[in-house]
């Protein structure tokens, strides 16, 4: 399969009035057509910044970026004007945790989806509404014709999230960016929306990047999983490789500290400390202050991302092969 998206050595730095934030510090990955890449990481690790970079959504005057983001061969970071608008409108779509950011409260859901379709395809009013109805049907909203006339606030949380997915898919994107789209949903609704995204991804052969801080959610939707820490991918591999044989000490710590059934009464293996401040460019392994395997060479330079086995990349120079799994 060819690569739909290629991100190479992406760096993103924000200038704020009182400091500089090195949010993303050299991220590289690919997404194939019809593949879901899960990106897992704690708050502030740079997941959303990475995702928004693919749409060039950062404030231009305060953001510095370098590296390369190629969608079907086209360099995103060089795009401006109508080319960038085409990228955002027709080629890449994004869904968020909060559907309120996608819908305007004063128009009906049908109106907003139909307008988007008209703007991007030049379809007639009637055809656009017909397509909007098909889209609601596709995201399994019951009585879609009626629901087109609903305002966003008249829908339940799960239904709004489905409608946002319909809006995102209205322009036939090849890549769907999902930033924690189920985090705010209730448990019984979250699983419905996860399954929907998985089904649509298959039906439409979409490339998907799914950002989450929940390992279970990542396991449900991903073909491969990347783990981010302090603005870098520290490990990237197939979902089974990542769950069965995680190699980076941070990934292992994250799995060990995630509570799941059968851990009752056992003491949890917490990772001590907290993630680093992003005010400086890391000069060593960013995880070193929290890592129980730290040794002098971890502090000499930032470790590179190297292949541990076929398709399994790890950013660690420690003697991880001798570590207990």
């Amino acid at each position: 399969m060819s690569n739909l998206l290629e991100v190479r050595d992406l760096h993103v730095t924000f200038r704020t009035p009182d400091r500089i934030v090195h949010a993303v510090n050299g991220v590289s990955f690919d997404v194939k057509r019809g593949e879901t890449l899960g990106i897992l990481g704690e708050s502030g690790s740079g997941k959303s910044v990475t995702l928004r970079s693919i749409l060039k959504l950062h404030p231009t005057h305060r953001t510095r970026w370098s590296g390369s983001i190629r969608l079907e061969g086209d360099e995103v970071l060089d795009m401006t004007g109508s080319v960038l608008a085409d990228l955002r409108g027709n080629r890449v779509a994004m869904i968020f945790q909060e559907p309120a950011t996608a819908f305007d409260p004063v128009f009906t859901v049908g109106h907003q989806i139909a307008e988007t379709i008209k703007r991007h395809t030049g379809k007639s009013e009637t055809d656009a509404w017909a397509r909007a109805k098909d889209l609601l049907e596709m995201v399994r909203i019951p009585s879609p014709a009626q629901r087109l006339k609903a305002y966003p606030h008249e829908m339940s949380g799960g239904m709004r999230q489905r409608a946002m997915i319909a809006l995102a898919l209205s322009c036939n994107p090849s890549l769907l960016l999902a930033d924690e789209p189920t985090t705010a949903l209730d448990a019984t609704v979250q699983i419905q929306v996860l399954l929907l995204i998985r089904e649509l991804q298959r039906e439409l052969a979409l490339g998907v990047i799914f950002v989450t801080h929940d390992i279970g959610v990542a396991v449900e939707v991903s073909d491969r999983i990347g783990v981010m820490y302090a603005g870098k991918l520290v490990e990237l591999g197939g979902v089974e490789q990542m769950v069965d044989a995680p190699r980076h000490p941070y990934t292992r710590g994250l799995l060990a500290s995630t509570v799941h059934g059968g851990m009752r009464g056992r003491r949890l293996e917490a990772i001590p400390g907290a993630p680093p401040d992003l005010a400086e460019v890391p000069a060593a392994c960013s995880f070193a202050p929290r890592c129980k395997y730290v040794e002098p060479k971890c502090l000499a330079a930032p470790p590179p991302l190297t292949a541990a086995t076929e398709g399994h990349l790890v950013r660690c120079v420690g003697r991880i092969d001798t570590l207990a799994a």
Partner: peptide, 22 residues
């Protein structure tokens, strides 16, 4: 509620939502 929990096992992904609606 219990079977709506995402799995930690990629070989046993959830195939069907236990209940529908909100």
């Amino acid at each position: 509620l219990l079977s709506a929990r995402p799995t930690m096992d990629p070989r046993r992904r959830t195939q069907e939502a236990p209940i529908q609606g909100d």
